[in-house]
């Protein structure tokens, strides 16, 4: 009915966090390069803003395409109150239940998959840098 609202809320939060992290990383890069005259810290691995952008794309992509599915099935409309379940008081409780169960599960599952992606990427980065160090 409106299960994509929970991933959408998470996507908004992740977008804000990603932008803040990106700004902080840019500032720290400028400071570091001024101090050591070296390049950015991102050379030592993937930056957090980059990792967060994966989660952001996963969430927003899912939200936009799921919104189309809900529009297709007539569960949402482009005019207020947007959710068709809101027109009938009897439908509000099942809608909220669906948001709480399916919506939350979707958000958690996507986040867990992203955490696995980050762990694998970090492990690969460490392995590659260890190889480079031993070769040198």
């Amino acid at each position: 009915m409106a299960c994509f609202l929970v991933p959408m809320a998470e996507a908004i939060v992740v977008t804000v966090v990603k932008n803040i992290v990106e700004k902080k990383e840019k500032n720290s890069d400028v400071k570091l390069s001024a101090q050591t005259e070296l390049c950015s810290t991102s050379q030592t691995g993937l930056s957090w803003s980059h990792k967060l952008s994966w989660l952001n794309k996963l969430l927003w992509g899912g939200v936009v395409l799921l919104a189309l599915e809900h529009l297709w099935h007539g569960e949402i409309v482009p005019w207020p109150p947007f959710l068709t379940a809101m027109n009938n008081p009897a439908d509000i409780a099942p809608m909220l239940h669906e948001v709480a169960t399916i919506g939350t599960s979707m958000a958690i599952f996507v986040t867990v998959v992203w955490v696995v992606m980050v762990l694998v990427a970090d492990h690969k980065t460490k392995t590659i840098s260890a190889k480079v160090n031993t070769e040198n």
């Binding site: 994509f4 994966w54 996963l58 992509g61 936009v64 799921l66 996507v110 998959v113």
Partner: peptide, 9 residues
């Protein structure tokens, strides 16, 4: 990533 997000959901 757009398609994977949708597939996972």
């Amino acid at each position: 990533l757009i398609y994977w997000g949708t597939t996972l959901m």
